[in-house]
């Protein structure tokens, strides 16, 4: 009887699993494996594949466009870390301090997160327009006309103009994560600290900030992996150009695959992105664990 039930369970488990597993193998795991394979061949997508070993990788590391795009990703990571994590923390903390209407503020600050990066990028293309764009019109209105720029063609600021909408868009994301973590700090801890005479700055730096370290780590990881995956804003605003000046690795990968039909090199770029993201996550988590405070 028990044996029969087990048999029945096994059959049911397999049947329930099948459709999901099939789709997942076909469109996620399979492509991942093929990506690795393609990175070792020379192929334009139609002709015969020629196995070239690690030649694609060697070519890639000698390719200056790869390093330009790589550095753009690094800059995006740094800007995201400097801007997103602290401002998200400040917003979260402001909401946390008995703020009336915190739900409305949270809802508004999160709003840009739900919009497609393609739409956000297209919006900012209009804002950056030197004639009708919001930024120059605003600067004129504030009598700061000297700060007006050709936001998307001045090579000095181009990359930062492309980064700005992305950084702006996802502050609310980090804020919500950090706010949720703050709310889970036990009230007794804060109360007993203020009874003991701790001021609000003391509570912030001695209690809230240390207890938030775990979630700040998550924020940092998400900044890095999110920046490595960045694509839409750059693609829609400039196609990564001129040249590859505002390209991220994903944009370079996309151009190499679908404009130049160099599937081998392109796959090698995607593999680099995957490995960088995984490596950072694993190494950072390990390092952070060592420095984490136990309660």
């Amino acid at each position: 009887m028990v044996k029969e039930l087990e048999k029945l369970k096994n059959r049911a488990a397999a049947l329930f699993l099948a459709p999901g597993l099939g789709l997942y193998l076909l469109f996620v795991i399979g492509p991942l494996i093929f990506s690795v394979y393609y990175s070792f061949v020379k192929w334009n997508g139609v002709g015969a594949k020629e196995f070239v070993g690690i030649a694609n990788y060697i070519k890639l590391y000698k390719f200056d466009q790869f390093w330009i795009a790589f550095m753009n990703n690094m800059k995006l990571i740094i800007v995201s870390l400097i801007v997103q994590v602290p401002s998200a923390f400040i917003f979260a903390y402001l909401l946390y301090r008995n703020t009336k209407g915190y739900k409305a503020f949270r809802a508004i600050l999160f709003l840009p997160v739900v919009v497609s990066p393609i739409a956000i990028g297209a919006m900012f293309s209009i804002f950056y327009n030197s004639e009708i764009g919001l930024f120059n019109v605003l600067l004129d209105a504030l009598h700061m006309g000297s700060l007006k720029r050709q936001w998307l063609s001045d090579p000095k600021i181009l990359l930062y103009s492309v980064m700005a909408p992305q950084v702006w868009q996802f502050i609310g994301y980090h804020m919500v994560i950090q706010f949720a973590a703050m709310q889970s700090i036990p009230h007794q801890v804060i109360e007993s600290a203020s009874i003991d005479g701790a001021g609000s700055t003391g509570i912030l730096f001695r209690i809230v900030l240390p207890m938030m370290w775990d979630v700040i780590q998550i924020s940092i990881i998400l900044c890095v992996t999110g920046s490595l995956k960045a694509f839409g804003h750059s693609w829609i605003m400039t196609q990564g150009g001129p040249g590859v000046r505002s390209s991220y690795l994903t944009v370079l990968m996309f151009r190499m695959a679908f404009l130049e039909r160099n599937f081998g090199m392109s796959s090698a770029i995607s593999l680099n992105i995957v490995v960088m993201a995984l490596l950072f996550t694993v190494v950072f988590k390990r390092m952070a664990k060592r420095s984490s405070i136990e309660y």
Partner: peptide, 24 residues
Amino acid sequence: ALYTFFTIGIMIPLHALLIPTFIL
């Protein structure tokens, strides 16, 4: 084991799947 297998997909950037999916 299967749970882990299914959730590793969360960490894979979709760009890495793009070319093989296109071919498929």
